[in-house]
């Protein structure tokens, strides 16, 4: 074990710091995911609208999210808004804004896809039963959409958790950064610590993401019918 450098994890409060870093990553992604899913549902419904202006606006939004690397978005939101508008956003708030900006677009697109995949006959039957447009969405379309959506959105959740590693660029010390700090602080005494520490960081990411993707698999199977 010595050669893997795992011993550095038990020096002082190192392991606790690593867990604190993990909590930072999880906290940022959890908050972002919840907001993204809620706003994404709305965005998805709007994306299916026939209004040309609305359609174009969402198209531009989606393209911006796809083209811009998250790192650039983080810099724009954290440093850019201070320069341009003088806002002093908290680093974590900036991170959440960027992840929500990304999440709503992707989630919206998923919702749009799921909505389109609902057969036309469902809308027609609802209409034949005398349901209003709102009722149709609330009782017929959305329940089916959500069912198709959950496996897809959980995939987005795990991707978000992994992408939180970028927030170290705006000064947030999350799990990966703590890992790097531990490796560097011990590079004279345990030059091989990199392997052990990164392995533990990998394990921590895995412990968070694995149950989430298992859940997706379970729901997918259960709702396959």
């Amino acid at each position: 074990m010595q050669s893997l450098g795992l011993d550095v994890l038990f020096k002082g409060t190192n392991f606790l710091r690593l867990l604190e870093g993990l909590w930072v990553s999880v906290r940022i992604s959890l908050i972002s995911v919840v907001i993204s899913i809620l706003l994404g549902l709305v965005a998805g419904v709007l994306m299916t609208s026939k209004n040309i202006v609305l359609k174009a606006a969402f198209r531009v939004y989606l393209e911006i999210v796809r083209i811009m690397p998250q790192m650039v978005l983080l810099f724009i939101v954290y440093f850019g808004t201070t320069r341009v508008f003088g806002w002093n956003l908290d680093a974590e708030a900036s991170a959440v804004i960027v992840f929500v900006f990304w999440g709503v677009a992707e989630m919206g697109d998923l919702v749009r896809g799921a909505l389109i995949s609902i057969p036309k006959i469902q809308y027609e039957s609802a209409e034949a039963l005398g349901l209003t447009k709102q009722q149709t969405y609330l009782y017929v379309i959305l329940p089916q959409t959500v069912r198709r959506l959950i496996p897809l959105s959980i995939n987005l959740v795990t991707r978000m958790i992994k992408t939180t590693s970028l927030v170290l660029m705006i000064g947030i010390v999350e799990v990966l950064k703590v890992g790097q700090q531990i490796i560097e602080a011990n590079r004279r005494t345990s030059p091989n610590a990199a392997f052990g520490v990164f392995a533990v960081v990998f394990l921590l990411y895995f412990l968070i993401c694995w149950p989430v993707s298992r859940l997706a698999g379970y729901l997918e199977k259960r709702w396959a019918a």
């Binding site: 550095v8 020096k11 002082g12 409060t13 710091r17 000064g171 700090q181 531990i182 560097e184 602080a185």
Partner: peptide, 20 residues
């Protein structure tokens, strides 16, 4: 003060979480 947190021995964080 902006410092490096992973560049020993100029700016790093020790095992107690303190900058050194």
């Amino acid at each position: 003060i902006g410092v490096f947190s992973d560049k020993s021995p100029f700016g790093y964080v020790d095992e107690n979480g303190d900058y050194q």
